[in-house]
Design a protein around this nucleic acid. Structure first.
Lengths: 348, 348
DNA sequence: TTGAAAGCGTTACCAA
DNA sequence: TTGGTAACGCTTTCAA
């Protein structure tokens, strides 16, 4: 009826031998191993995971905590994680920890304490102090994809650099009135947004354009970008000639808004994003590509390393990003080129 | 050090009493219960889930199998599931079973067989015969959200009706050249698409417009809808005046394509979708609303019912849908109204 | 190379 | 109402 005992009986060996034969650990003669395997497969034997966990202390399961699952970045990371874990025979249990919800509290207070997993991957969690403490006190390795401070191993892109690079691309095209559209400081995604914002400011400053820098606050979603852009582009006289969006979703929202307002992209307005979202191509969006899916895969690998050697030091892994030039950015209209030269001189 | 024994000792009772006191089952005096609870919380006691599972046969975990996680419908369902499960203290383990991948095979062959869950929720899986067999042979209750045939309890909307309703809305606005944009019969989402397509055909037939019916094949994504629409709207002479999209993502792709081609929505082209996607409002999309999130919640409830009474008969739960009129649909241009009257006469 | 037996941490039955 | 004890199904010493 139940389990390995049956297999052992059928193979004519003891439970311990059967266990060794199946588990691949310890000495078993080739012959017995074969007999045991045969018995197991003829019985369709599948070990009870709870019994295995109880005996070994390993669950073969990885917990994944993230605040959203319906946003591009998160969904992509999740797919990367799932794929990598599946490949290694590990289960994935998901905890959807939306900031400021009861659910999030319960996750941190009850669910994580159950330790139903061998390790934890936190994606864009941006936990507060208490939450970080809880995370670390579980006694299981934790790897973050973006933003859990310096307390865990983390994989991320260099947000400051990426935003800087995006801004420089626009500067190089002759733009001076370059605005940044992205999350306010209080929103979620705050850390990432703050870094990108500061990269933008840095690049503006380096180009001598500090006094042209404008932060247009927007919710970090496509509709959010749309709303913010409709508002900001409405005023024809004070309209920027170029926009750095904090991510492609916001960039696309901006482009849609521009089209609605009759503002031509890129001739009237250049827009650059960060991500290389699946819709980027459809909108000819120039962007800085990152691969969240790959970040998920790397996170799994890092976690497994911690798993088989808990003494490993924490690491920060910086993933690459790449400028993808499409058709949403263009050189500033010739009519305004005099100004451009001007600014270059100032910049030097 | 470990577990309930420690709690028992501290409370001055036996393990069994401690277990009863904590589990809420069986007789315990109020006084002992209090002492045990106090001891437990002072020790920060958390029961070992694997031990509990081993002893009870219950995992307190629900498996969720879906082919995508990065598409609106699926992500929404997932959030609904997560929220409901969390609320009841149940874990969610996710299996991402993309059609035609090795991963999917492994999930069906290895992962599901482990029975790491008390029940299974299959979302838009559209499993083939073998897969259905596997699903059912696990010996755990299964609930489907959309499309696992008649073999499991299922929650879904009436796809035929919804597409019919959408088509009728356009007919009522005087349109005759109404095309359907959606998945080819071989694509995934096949069942749902086929039902919607047939609802569309049915409505066209009822309106006496069978010979105006056109199925424009499109991948069921925003870029897919975009590509199909760019192609289909390119030919000015044979352009439909209205489009029923198989879902909002395709509808939005269509609208974006129309705008790019200078086709005005709704004056030149009416577009109706199905879903009420988070972007629908941003595109003023008329659509038939469904709530995948709610479908997720209902699925959990149905599963739990099966869990505490396995003899319960299978059920089909039809979720409501609702026409949301926005600005992507309008009465056929007056220039063509003669034709409209014509068709009405024919229709009667 | 194999087997016996002692856990792993709970629950649940049966007496007391 | 409580406690002793046998499961639950597997792994892992330790001897043989």
């Amino acid at each position: 009826m139940s389990g390995i005992a049956e297999v052992a009986r059928l193979a004519g060996v003891s439970k311990s031998t059967a266990s060794r034969a199946l588990g691949g650990t310890g000495y078993v003669s080739d012959d017995t191993r074969r007999r045991v395997m045969a018995a197991a497969s003829s019985l369709g034997y599948v070990p009870s995971t709870s019994a295995v966990s109880l005996a070994t202390g390993r669950t073969q399961n990885i917990g994944v905590v993230m605040p959203y699952v319906n946003r591009w970045f998160f969904a992509e990371v999740l797919e990367g994680l799932q794929q990598s874990l599946l490949q290694r025979g590990l289960d994935l249990t998901l905890y959807d920890a939306k900031p400021g919800t009861d659910g999030r509290n319960r996750i941190f207070e009850d669910f994580l304490a159950r330790k139903r997993f061998d390790g934890l991957i936190a994606v864009g969690l941006e936990p507060d102090h208490d939450e970080i403490d809880r995370l670390l006190s579980i006694g299981r390795p934790v790897v973050s994809v973006v933003g859990s401070g310096e307390e865990t191993t983390v994989v991320e892109i260099d947000d400051d650099y990426v935003a800087r690079r995006a801004t420089e691309h626009l500067v190089a095209l002759g733009h001076r009135d370059i605005a940044f559209v992205g999350g306010g400081v209080t929103t979620h995604w705050a850390q990432v947004d703050r870094r990108r914002l500061s990269g933008y400011f840095g690049a503006m400053e380096d180009a001598g354009l500090s006094n042209h820098a404008v932060h247009i606050v927007s919710e970090v979603t496509m509709p959010g970008g749309y709303a913010a852009a409709v508002d900001a582009l409405g005023d024809v006289r004070n309209r920027p000639t170029a926009i750095v969006a904090t991510c492609d979703e916001v960039a696309i929202g901006t482009i849609i808004a521009a089209r609605r307002l009759g503002v031509q992209v890129p001739s009237d307005l250049s827009v650059i994003g960060i991500d290389d979202h699946e819709f980027a191509d459809m909108f000819s969006l120039t962007t800085l590509r990152q691969s969240p899916r790959e970040q998920g895969r790397v996170a799994v690998q890092l976690l497994l390393e911690h798993l088989d050697d808990p003494s490993r030091p924490m690491r920060v892994v910086r993933m690459p990003s790449q400028l993808i030039v499409r058709n949403s950015t263009a050189a500033l209209d010739p009519r305004r080129s005099a100004v451009v030269i001007d600014s270059r001189v100032r910049g030097e």
